Every structure is written in C-alpha cells, then in structure tokens.
Computed example of a mutant assay.
Amino acid sequence: MGRLAKEQEIAERLGVRYLTGPATHSILFSFVTLVASQERYDRMLTSALAKGFTPENSEFLALDNRNANRFDGFDAMRRALVEARGRYIVFTHDDIEFTHDGAAELEARLDELRALDPDWTLAGNAGGIGYRRGKHHLAVHIDDPHKLGLRVTQPELVESLDENFFVMRRNRPVVNSYDLEGFHFYAGDLCRMSEIMGGRSYVIPFLLSHHSGGTVDEAFPLCRSRFERKYRRYFVGRNLQMTVAEFRFGLAGMCEGWGETPKSRWDFLKRNVYAPERSGVDDT
C-alpha cells in the first residue's frame, strides 16, 4: 500500500472532516432566552409563532432560571453558543413580545444590514451611540413602558446594545468575558469584545414590545463597578454610552498601568475584577 493510500485510510478510520468553506446552518434563527417566568416566556413564544417564527425557520433554547438562577447573562451566552444551530442567534429577555414585526421583517432587516456592512457582528433594538459633552446619544426602536416613541429608519452604528433583544451572526461569534458576571452589561461586554475583534454593532428598525422598562436592582452598582474597572484599562480616556448608564474612563486606567508587573496585574484582577463570591457554575 502506498503512503498516500495509507494516509487516506487512516483519515477515514478517524472520521476526519475536511472543512472547505463557511459553516452551514440548518435553520435561520436560534432564539436564546433567559427564562425566569414561564408565564412571560409562554407569551413570548405565542407571539413568535403568530409572527412567523416556526419550527421550519427557528429553534428556541431556554436557559432555565425558573426555580433558581442557574445562569447569569454572561455564562448564559457562552452556554448557548455551543447549542445554537441557526444562521442568526437571537438573545432575548423572557418579557418581550412580538407585537409588530416578525420573521420576514427580521430577515429583511438583517439582509439590509449585511448589504450596508458585510462585517457587522451584533444588532439590536436599542443602544448607545455615544456620550459627548454631557449628553446621552441613543438609538432606540422599541415599544416599552418608557413610551419615548423613538425610532430609527435605517441601521445606526452604536457602541453598546441593550440586553432585551440582540442578534449575533453564527459565523462571526463573540463570547462574553470570563471575568465578569451578573445580569447587567453583558450585551455591552459583547460589544466591547466585538470591537476588539474587528466587528461592529448596530441598532436596526425591527419593532417589538418589551414589557419592562429595565431593572436597576441592588446588584447593578456592583456589576457597573466591575465592568468599569475592567475596561478603563483598555479604553483609557474614552466615554462609553449604554442604554442605562454611561462610563467616563478618564486616565484612571493609564495611572493604574504605570509601573505594572505581572504580579501587580494579577493582584489588580483579583481585587477589582474577579468576583470573590462567584457561584462557579460547573460546565465541565
């Protein structure tokens, strides 16, 4: 047996798969939802089916927090990526409802975005354009309790997205930070990771209803502090606009970096970023 034939036989025995192009997808949308309330989630599912999100074009993955918080926003996104089969991965809260646009509109808006920017990474219905001269600049296309009535007519480039609804391209995946946790700023974290990887985020004119105006609970200040302490070292002097907060990093990150050693860097992470009370969900 010749060498080439022998190598081919070994490859066949081991079941080698030769990848020759982009990843394929069996469906269009993978919906990933942090589910705390079955009643709210049932309302979302009912509205999704009514608006054309069917088993033929969509799958629905529920991160089960109904009886306990098994997942937070950061680890939920990482967990879902290994399961999703859709061309687009759609992350949602369980309290959204498809009252306006549906499957046809979402596919059309994403096709339009790809024509505008082939390198887009994330898209959503609300986000921060920037924080400049003490003013908040937002792009919003949503019905929610705030009743602001804000709308976009075309994709708007943003530096952050809201967590209630956002879309990721399966062939341009982004993962959340391993050193952050909680239920706030995980979409903003994805936008930062996307930016570092060379991607861009947009708000698109896709309209749905979000039945919450956002929750600023007792965990919010801690999540904000950890997010700030991490990113001020990488975005020195930058202002960053979220839908629920703004960050003015100033020169603090630069000052912290002066005279840094490997040990001081590790001490900084342990003290300011890593959460000592982490629950440590076992994903092995």
Rank of each mutant, 00 (worst) to 15 (best):
M1Q: 10
G2R: 10
R3N: 12
A5N: 12
A5K: 14
E7Q: 14
A11C: 14
E12V: 08
L14I: 09
G15K: 06
Y18V: 14
T20E: 09
T20L: 11
S26V: 10
S30G: 04
V32Q: 00
V32P: 01
V32L: 03
L34R: 02
E39S: 09
E39Y: 03
E39W: 01
R40W: 03
D42S: 09
S47L: 03
A48I: 02
A48V: 01
A48E: 01
L49I: 05
A50H: 07
G52E: 05
P55I: 06
N57K: 06
S58C: 15
A62N: 13
N65P: 13
R66W: 06
A68H: 15
R70S: 14
R70V: 15
F71V: 00
A76F: 12
M77N: 03
R79N: 08
E83S: 12
A84E: 01
R85E: 14
G86S: 05
F91M: 00
F91T: 00
H93E: 06
I96Y: 00
I96D: 00
E97C: 08
A103C: 11
E107P: 02
D111S: 13
R114E: 15
R114S: 10
R114F: 07
L116Y: 04
D117V: 10
D119L: 10
L122G: 00
G124C: 09
N125I: 15
N125Q: 08
A126D: 02
A126K: 06
G134C: 14
G134L: 11
K135M: 14
H136F: 12
L138C: 09
D144W: 08
L148D: 13
L148M: 13
L148E: 15
P155M: 08
P155R: 04
E159H: 05
E159L: 08
E159Y: 05
S160F: 04
S160Q: 05
E163W: 00
N171R: 08
N171L: 07
D179T: 07
E181W: 10
E181N: 14
G182Q: 11
F183E: 05
G188H: 03
L190D: 02
R192G: 02
M197C: 09
Y202F: 15
I204E: 01
I204W: 02
P205D: 09
L207K: 14
S209G: 06
T215L: 09
L222K: 12
C223D: 13
E228N: 06
K230H: 08
Y231S: 04
Y231T: 03
Y231W: 15
Y231E: 04
N239C: 11
Q241H: 08
E246L: 04
E246F: 14
E246C: 11
G259D: 10
E260L: 06
W266S: 13
F268C: 10
K270F: 09
K270Y: 07
R271I: 04
R271D: 13
N272H: 15
Y274L: 15
Y274S: 05
A275I: 03
